[in-house]
Amino acid sequence: MKVAVCTKQIPDPQAPQHLGEDLRLVRSGKALLDDADTYGVELGLRLTEASGGDVVVVSMVPGGETAGVRQALAMGAASAVVVSDERLEGADALTTARVLAAVVRRLGADLVITATESTDGYTGTVAGQIAGLLGWPALTFTRGLHLEGSRVTAERQVEDGVWVVEAELPCVVSVTAGIVDPRYPSFKGIMSAKSKPVEQLSLDDLGLGVQVRERVRSAREAEARSAGTVIEDDGTAEAAIVAFLESIKVL
């Protein structure tokens, strides 16, 4: 079985984020594998370890940067295919899905795994769009997964609980954080990741053209909440909280 795990490299989410003059997220710092993607990589590894096959990491990367992709390879993925093309700058979700779907077709993957949403863009539609483009079922918002032969059974997160849903391979699965515990790359994994194959493709290689059809028009500071009071708990802070609750008539 060939499992394509789509990943995204993002700027360090702990570092301060800002928009550039073009009103796009500044991505100049180090590119890291989105934490949200480590769950998909882990799930892919477990499935292929159990039933055979390989995990291929698929990613759209600016400027040929692959540091984050190597993190996934260090976890145990066999190889990676990255698409790097300056025309993809500012690509919207549908464009991203087109590129990823084209790579999946080229790979002949049986299963595509993505995160539910990226930590920096959090669109949350790319998995469904890849599935739509491929004409495959989309098992989205999955927090538990079972594969038997070609039948995929997934626990789907919904507003008030969990639904058990089912589809046949090939299909696309988007996974929530916590579906599995991602492994830490071993020293051996990190060393071998350096020599694993990473294929670099351009849009021309995929026979795709793109058109960027979305843009950010303006950005402004949100109305800040009025600055509140911060106190230290010296053992009597409960009185201050009760007084506050009285002042707003909750008590």
Binding site: A93, L94, G124, T125, G128, Q129, A131, G132, Q157
Partner: peptide, 23 residues
């Protein structure tokens, strides 16, 4: 912007070849 809503938005955007703006 719900589970069902996002699935619907994703499929509609593909079928219509339309950009999708979320959140």
């Amino acid at each position: 912007q719900t589970y069902t809503g996002r699935d619907a938005a994703a499929r509609a955007s593909v079928e219509l070849d339309a950009p999708v703006l979320t959140n």
